[in-house]
Amino acid sequence: MSKNKADANDDSRRDFMMKVSLGLGGLAAVAVSVPVVGALIAPLLEAKPELWRSVGSPDEFPVGTTKLVTFENADPKTWAGTTARTAAWVRHEEDNKFTVFSVNCTHLGCPVRWEKDAELFMCPCHGGVYYKDGSVAAGPPPIPLPQYAVRVEQGQVQVGTAPIPITNFGDNSTV
């Protein structure tokens, strides 16, 4: 009788220890996962400063022209090298009124180039075409070319850094 009871005690004790060990194992796994998953999602957790980058004085952009400018992203790391650069198309509409277009085609992000004589932006990947105001002229792009913030300060045209524009699911529905 007492022996049976001891067995039963052993059983419940083993059962308990098994549960404790599984729980501790799970805890250890979670403890390790947190920093690893943290490394994976780190780019989402970073503060995203928006900076104004000077790209030249207004007279470098004759009225009615569209010109490529290059500026450095916000907060580049030292090992980014040339990848820290972003390009944009600056259009001088009229007296000190500028529009700055993203180079990223809204179809799949390839770099559009400005064809000066044709006055069109053209994408090499799938043939997207935009007019000089960034609106879609032909091809698969679902929405116009996105624009960067722009201002003229201290005698300089300044462009606001921004994320690469990402076209979303619903952006097509209006087409």
């Binding site: 999602i41 989402l44 090992w79 980014a80 990848t83 820290a84 979303n168």
Partner: peptide
């Protein structure tokens, strides 16, 4: 980015930030 709701987040995760850069 075309995946509903989480598209932009996944796109940023893939390239390691808002733009191509050190983490990509």
């Amino acid at each position: 980015g075309r995946i509903p709701l989480v598209g932009t987040t996944l796109a940023r995760l893939l390239i390691g930030g808002d733009t191509i850069g050190a983490q990509s």
